[in-house]
Design a protein around this nucleic acid. Sequence first.
DNA 1: ATCGTATTGTGAATGAAATCACGACTTATG
DNA 2: CATAAGTCGTGATTTCATTCACAATACGAT
Lengths: 215, 215
Amino acid sequence: MEQKKIPQATAKRLPLYYRFLTNLNHQGKARVSSHELSKAVKVDSATIRRDFSYFGALGKKGYGYNVEYLLGFFRKTLDQDELTEVALIGVGNLGTAFLHYNFVRNNNTKIVLAFDSDPKKVGTHIEGVPIYHIDELAEKLSDVRVAILTVPDREAQDITEKLVRTGIEGILNFTPARITVPDRIRVHHIDLAIELQSLTYFLKHYPLDPQESGE
Amino acid sequence: MEQKKIPQATAKRLPLYYRFLTNLNHQGKARVSSHELSKAVKVDSATIRRDFSYFGALGKKGYGYNVEYLLGFFRKTLDQDELTEVALIGVGNLGTAFLHYNFVRNNNTKIVLAFDSDPKKVGTHIEGVPIYHIDELAEKLSDVRVAILTVPDREAQDITEKLVRTGIEGILNFTPARITVPDRIRVHHIDLAIELQSLTYFLKHYPLDPQESGE
DNA sequence: ATCGTATTGTGAATGAAATCACGACTTATG
DNA sequence: CATAAGTCGTGATTTCATTCACAATACGAT
C-alpha cells in the first residue's frame, strides 16, 4: 500500500495525468510522449518525466509511453478500482453542484450520502443520493471516511467536531473557516473567495511572463 | 503599483490574513501576535512574520502587530478599496453557488454579469446579477477583465477563445479542461474532482504526521 | 528605573520542487 | 546495417518556500 516517497506535488498531479491518459485512450492513441502530454496538461515535460520516474521506468527511450500500459499502472496506483465513499455535508448551491457533478467520469470517489438541516431537503434525493438531517450524522456515517464540507462558515467548526467524533479521516473544506481538527485528520482547504482575490492580485502585481498556469 | 518581490506563496496568503484581521478588528482586538494569528489561519508563525516582513517592519518587537494598522496596510496592498468586476460564465449549479456566495464579505471583487446558453435563464437575474446569452459575450463584456469559468468542460476551450477575443486578462477555471490561452492571460485552475481524488490519495498513502493542513 | 517576559525581524539552514542538460537507448529510414 | 531523429531517465543545478534560532527591542509590573 505504500509506494516509497512520492513527492506531494507529484501526487497531486496524478489524477490529472490519469484523466488525460483516459482521454487519449478513448481517442485510440497507443503512444504518447512527455512533450505531447505536456501540451495537454500544461505541465513541463521534464516534470512529467520526473513524476513518472518515481514509479520506475514506465516509458521507452526514443519511443515514449504506451498509453494503455501507463493507464493500467496508474489505475492501480491511484486505487482507481477501489471506490472511496464520500459524505457531503451541506446541500446548498455548492453542495448541490457537487451532487450533480456526480463524479461520473473515471472515478474512484463517490458521494453516497448527504446531510442538511433544511427540512425541505431532508428525506429527498439528488442524483440518487439521499439527504439526511444533520443530526443523524453519527448514525448514518458509519464507515464513510471522507467528507466534503459545504456549509455556511459559521457552522463549520461545530459540524467539523461532529464529524471528528464519527471517526472521519479527511475533510475537503470549502468554507472560509480554517477549521481545527486533531492531528490525525487531514484537511484540505479550498477557499473560493481567496482564489478569486489572489487571481486579481496576481493580475495587478505580476507582469506575467514567467509561466502562465495557476496551481 | 509594484511592490518589489513578494513570493507567490506569500501573495496567496494575503487575502487570508486580511480576512482574519478583519474578524479580529470586528471583535475589538487591538493587537495580535504572529502566534495568535498562526493558530487562527493555520500557518506557521515564522512564515507569517516572514510574509509580513516583505512589506517592511509592520510590527513591534515584544508587542506584536497593531490590528488596525496592519489592516489599513493590507487594504491598500490588496487594493481592497478598488473594486474588480468579474464575469461569470456558466450559470449551472456551481455558477449559481458563486452568485449566491455574492462575495459580500470584505471584498474587492464582484460578479457584475453572468452568461449562460439556457433560454430559461437568459434575461433573469440572480442576486441582482443579470444573465445574458453566451452569444452576447463580446458586446456585454466591454471592460470586465476577470472571468469565472463554470461551464461544461466540453465547451471550455471554445468559450475561452471567445473570452480571449474580448480582451480578458484572467480566468478562474473550474472546468476539468486544461484550457489553452495566449501567454498574456493568467489562468488559475481549480479542479474539484482532482482535489477530492488527491485528498483520498493522501489519506491512503501518507501516514500523516508531518503537518495537517492542505493548500 | 530596572527587570523579566514577550515578540519581532531576519540571517542561515533546510527542504521541496522545478528545470537543465545530456548519456543511453529505440525506432525509422534508406 | 548505418545513420538520423526522437525520447526517456536522471544527476546536477537552480529556484522557491519554510523553518530554525536568536539578537534586538518593547512592554508592563514593581
